[in-house]
């Protein structure tokens, strides 16, 4: 392939329009599940961290779910929740499940890592459980949790492409199209855009984490 080919592909306004549209779809299909998955994982992880029985069920379910290949999950979901077979909602649901399965471990790990004396001190000062969770444990869990969210975001962004095989939008469409027309340019552009999106979201997550955890940056000082 030559650069000319790439230039010709990107030079066409209709191609650029399609790129923008699929890119937008891709962002939507990867980030909405990220948010939903996080919302599911936090309460689930909270329960799992407290009750060993819940932990066993949640972790067991999460690991089986995580083992199921994406293509399989994408096509099985309509059979389970009754959506239409070639609907992008299937991708959203599947990625939400993956995200939750991955993050529930992060949540539990992050909560486990909160130092015992800190929670004991909070209890001793008269925090009730919900308030303690929201104002002490959850903020302290942010660094570990962010690590999990970063993994999930990268994973989601690269997985959305597989959705093209079951007819949903996103940058995966560029791959199927390139394959059908034996044309390398859209494939290359699709790969680069996916990597770029993953990188940008990752940076954004790091920035958000730093904003949320001012105490982690200011370590030098008195003594360590």
């Amino acid at each position: 392939m030559t650069l000319d080919e790439l230039g010709r592909y990107l030079g066409s306004p209709s191609n650029r329009e399609q790129l923008a549209e699929q890119f937008g779809q891709h962002v939507y299909l990867s980030l909405v599940p990220l948010l939903l998955g996080l919302l599911v994982a936090v309460p689930l992880g909270w329960g799992a961290q407290r009750l060993p029985s819940v932990r066993a069920v949640v972790f067991g379910g999460a690991s089986v779910l995580y083992t199921v290949p994406s293509l399989a999950l994408f096509v099985v979901i309509p059979g389970i929740i009754g959506t239409r077979t070639l609907d992008s909602i299937n991708v959203v649901v599947a990625l939400t499940l993956y995200t939750a399965a991955l993050l529930v471990r992060s949540v539990v790990g992050a909560l486990d890592a909160v130092p015992g004396p800190v929670t004991a001190a909070a209890t001793a000062m008269g925090y009730r459980p919900l308030r303690r969770f929201l104002t002490v444990e959850l903020p302290l869990a942010v660094p570990v949790l962010t690590a999990g969210v970063r993994v999930a975001s990268v994973s989601n962004i690269s997985l959305v492409s597989v959705g093209a095989l079951i007819g949903t939008g996103g940058l995966g469409v560029l791959f199927t199209e390139g394959f059908r027309t034996r044309y390398l340019a859209p494939i290359l552009v699709g790969i680069v855009l996916t990597l770029l999106l993953a990188l940008v979201v990752d940076r954004a997550l790091v920035l958000a984490r730093n904003r949320l955890t001012p105490w982690t940056r200011s370590t030098p000082g008195g003594a360590r």
């Binding site: 940058l171 995966g172 390139g178 394959f179 990188l199």
Partner: peptide, 14 residues
Amino acid sequence: RALPTLGLVTFLYL
């Protein structure tokens, strides 16, 4: 990790 599999597979195929 961010590399889309479908993209990689079609790319290598071509």
